[in-house]
């Protein structure tokens, strides 16, 4: 069972307190009516499904109930970092340097 750091609670808690919520940084278009069918299809359905580092959303459902973002390695399963919703995607190079 993974340990996950909630960036709002600033505490490391076991995985059972959290739920996965899909890929991160998929921004809903400000005006969806301006998207063409292909763009909208991509927004709805097309996902990275990365092998390796993956930006994804989690929710501290049995804690503070906040949605947040994470960088996680889908091979080792482990979290590299977590950060608050709305913050920009961290640069992987920066994280690797600090690791």
């Amino acid at each position: 069972m993974l340990l996950i750091r909630c960036p709002y609670c600033n505490a490391e808690r076991p995985e059972v307190e959290f739920v996965y919520a899909g890929e991160a940084h998929i921004v809903r278009p400000v005006d969806p009516s301006q998207t063409d069918d292909d763009q909208w299809r991509d927004h709805l359905y097309v996902r990275n499904n990365a092998r390796g580092l993956h930006f994804e959303r989690w929710r501290h459902i049995h804690g503070c109930a906040r949605f947040f973002n994470a960088l996680r390695d889908t091979v080792s399963d482990k979290f590299v970092t977590t950060y608050k919703a709305g913050l920009p995607r961290p640069r992987i190079e920066d994280i690797k340097e600090s690791m």
């Binding site: 005006d31 969806p32 009516s33 998207t35 069918d37 909208w40 709805l44």
Partner: peptide
């Protein structure tokens, strides 16, 4: 209404 959740999808072919 200009938008609501699901509105854009209702215009898909």
């Amino acid at each position: 209404k200009p938008d609501f959740v699901g509105k854009r999808s209702l215009a898909r072919p």
